[in-house]
Simulated scan of single mutants.
Amino acid sequence: MSHDAGDGGSDRRIGRGRIADRIVDDLRERILSGELPNASRLPAERELAEQYGVSGATVREAIRVLATVGLVSVQHGTGSFITAESDTMIGMSIASVVRLEGLGATEVLGVLGALNRHAAQLAVREATDAEIDSLGETAEKLAVVNNTDGTIEDLRTFMRRLSEISHNALLASLCRYLVDVQVELAVKMSGGRVAEWRRVAGGLQADRLAVVAALKSRSVERAVEAVDAHTAHAVNLILSTPQAKKIQVSDPGFAHLLAGLLNTKLGSAAR
């Protein structure tokens, strides 16, 4: 059960200036510090207006900004709730930059590749044998690709697991979001055709096994080479599908397609 957060009676009046921005800064600090706990209900607009000595409209503007960056979820008729989850905030930030700069698939997938390379370097030193074995077991599940739905989750799990066994929380959060983008892009490019999905997802099986073997060898050099090869092959397979070639005629960098996928993810995160 959610509980109300904060002391509705405290006076947090602030001076002149960009008042809504300053309220955003104060509430963000209270959320990130844990004063307003995750999943708790944000004080009502009237209470916040009294605390800060501003109008209800100013408070609503501040809450709208907090919702945009993923710190708050507005549920009409119920109130606003703290949703300070790192994956959501990171995802929304990445999506905003990608859309603002008009970045395409190659740039975004290249960043994921660089992050995976760093994850592999860390995993060589930090991952336990059991964790690397677990990554291998996930890879084995992808040995046979019979349909799209049956392998999407296993593919996500394998790619996310690589970053998770690096034992770097920030790296794992960054990778989780970009992994979802890559998987969704691969699904989109397969056009719903099992044969094409098998060519893309199944075509990377040797690369996945090579990554696992490299990690087991505890060789940073081998791990980096294996991950780089996996990344290059994945990008080539995804962007060489008939669907990708068709889209490329009107959207050379796949920027519009990627913006659409990100827009969908932003909408899902905001709900």
Rank of each mutant, 00 (worst) to 15 (best):
T106K: 14
Q182S: 12
R22W: 00
S96D: 13
N38T: 10
L109N: 09
F81G: 12
A120F: 05
D154W: 09
E47A: 15
D180I: 02
W197F: 01
I82Q: 10
G260T: 06
I19Q: 12
A143F: 00
K265R: 15
G53M: 02
E140M: 08
G267M: 09
A232E: 07
L266E: 14
L112I: 07
R16F: 00
E126H: 15
V145D: 01
G202Y: 02
L142N: 10
A123W: 01
G56L: 11
D26E: 14
L71M: 13
I31M: 10
R271G: 13
V220E: 11
D154R: 04
S96V: 09
S163T: 04
L239M: 05
D26P: 15
E153Q: 05
S33R: 15
P43L: 08
A259T: 05
M1V: 09
G150K: 09
A57N: 12
A259Y: 00
E45G: 13
L162E: 07
R198S: 11
V179L: 01
A20Y: 06
L257R: 06
K141H: 13
R64F: 00
S86K: 15
L261E: 10
G34K: 06
V65G: 03
H167G: 09
I31H: 03
I165K: 09
L32M: 13
G191W: 04
L42P: 10
A210H: 07
G110C: 09
R271W: 04
L215F: 05
L170T: 15
R117H: 12
V124T: 12
D154V: 02
Q75N: 13
